[in-house]
């Protein structure tokens, strides 16, 4: 490791807040994109299941 201690890694001689904020926001945005995909996929699946149930109900009558 380039830094001597963990606290030095966090402070990065004064630039720590900028660097860690950038990485934090990036992780957040990328994770949000994945979470949105998950949610939309779940919603789409639910919609299709409802569609099939309705179709089955009408054909069985």
């Amino acid at each position: 490791m380039y830094f001597n201690s963990v606290s030095e890694l966090f402070s990065m001689s004064g630039h720590g807040s900028y660097v860690w904020f950038s990485y934090g926001v990036s992780a957040l945005v990328l994770a949000t994109l994945v979470i949105i995909a998950r949610r939309r996929r779940a919603a789409a699946e639910q919609h299709i299941r409802a569609l099939v149930r309705r179709k089955d109900a009408t054909t069985s009558n």
């Binding site: 001689s13 004064g14 630039h15 900028y18 660097v19 990485y23």
Partner: peptide, 10 residues
């Protein structure tokens, strides 16, 4: 200094 480390994501 250390601020260039943002480059790896930017």
């Amino acid at each position: 200094g250390n601020s260039f480390r943002i480059m790896y994501i930017h």
